[in-house]
Amino acid sequence: MKFKLLLILSFVYGNLIAQTDWERWDADNSVFQLKGIQERDYSLDKSNVGMMALTALRDLYWFAFSDLDGDNCPFHPTCSSFFVEAVKKTNLLQGLLMFADRFTRDTNFFKGFNHYEIDETGKFFDPVDNYTLTGTYIRKQSYHKRKYKLK
């Protein structure tokens, strides 16, 4: 098993090195910056009235409760973001069903034993697309990308 993992990692690593020059690139003019804490995106979705109302509701929930009661959600995306994204990607009814399911899964005391992948911030990676019943299946692979040893 360990060997297999090593094989996958070395494969990823080899590819990363080779790919640098497979596309032309320009000078990098970025500024020296330390990585900050990611902030919530409060912006409204203006694609239609329904989504606007929904994102406004979400913002209200964030402002009045979620931003005040600490970091409780073990998932990425959080339940509120999951709901908004689910409605956007499907429809209100399906979005509600997906949310009900996610909420139930959140109340599971033993979700650590579930087969969720863990993302960079230590949250359970649980993307909306995997639940839309379209057959899409996204895995969190980028997490392993930077695991090789730096010199």
Partner: peptide, 22 residues
């Protein structure tokens, strides 16, 4: 609401199970 959500979630869970294996 939760009854319906769970039926939906069960279907999704089966699909995720299949996709993961595939």
């Amino acid at each position: 609401f939760f009854y319906a959500g769970n039926i939906y979630g069960s279907v999704a869970a089966a699909q995720i199970y299949n996709n993961k294996i595939k």
